Amino acid sequence: MQKKAYLLLEDGLLVEGTAIGKIGTSGGEICFNTGMTGYQEIYTDPSYYGQIIVNTNAHIGNYGAFDAEQESSRPMISGLVVNEFAHEFSRKSATGSLQQYLESRNVVGIANIDTRMLVRYIRSKGAMNAIISSELTPDQLKAEIKKVPSMNGLELSSLVTTKEAYTVGDAHAAIKVAVLDLGIKQSIVTNLASRGVFCKVFPAKTSFAEMKAWNPHGYFISNGPGDPSVMTYAIETVKQALDSGKPLFGICLGHQLLALASGISTYKMHHGHRGLNHPVKNLVTGKGEMTSQNHGFSVNEKDIEKNANVMVTHVHLNDNTIMGIRLKDRKAFSVQYHPEASPGPHDSRYLFDEFIEMIQAEIAEPVTA
Results as ranks from 00 to 15, higher is better:
145 I>P: 02
118 L>N: 08
162 T>I: 11
214 W>T: 07
171 A>Y: 06
293 Q>S: 12
58 A>G: 02
32 F>W: 09
37 T>A: 12
272 G>R: 01
263 G>N: 03
206 T>Y: 06
182 L>R: 09
90 S>R: 14
58 A>N: 10
84 E>A: 11
266 T>W: 05
328 K>E: 05
229 S>Q: 01
54 V>F: 11
343 P>N: 10
151 M>V: 09
156 L>K: 05
87 H>V: 08
128 M>Y: 06
205 K>S: 10
254 G>Q: 00
164 E>N: 15
273 H>T: 00
346 H>E: 13
223 N>W: 01
296 G>E: 02
205 K>D: 11
15 V>F: 07
328 K>R: 13
86 A>H: 15
259 A>H: 06
115 T>A: 11
121 Y>D: 11
257 L>N: 05
184 I>Y: 12
130 A>S: 13
79 G>M: 08
11 D>P: 07
268 K>A: 10
57 N>Q: 13
14 L>W: 14
270 H>F: 10
54 V>W: 01
30 I>N: 03
367 V>P: 00
211 M>H: 01
67 D>V: 03
40 Q>N: 13
273 H>K: 12
318 N>F: 04
31 C>S: 11
63 Y>Q: 10
70 Q>N: 12
54 V>S: 05
169 G>C: 09
368 T>S: 15
103 E>S: 15
259 A>S: 12
207 S>R: 10
56 T>V: 07
261 A>M: 03
47 S>M: 06
44 T>Y: 08
164 E>A: 14
314 H>K: 07
95 T>E: 14
360 Q>M: 12
2 Q>F: 07
176 K>G: 02
332 A>M: 03
70 Q>S: 08
149 P>N: 14
214 W>V: 03
190 T>N: 14
238 V>T: 02
95 T>G: 15
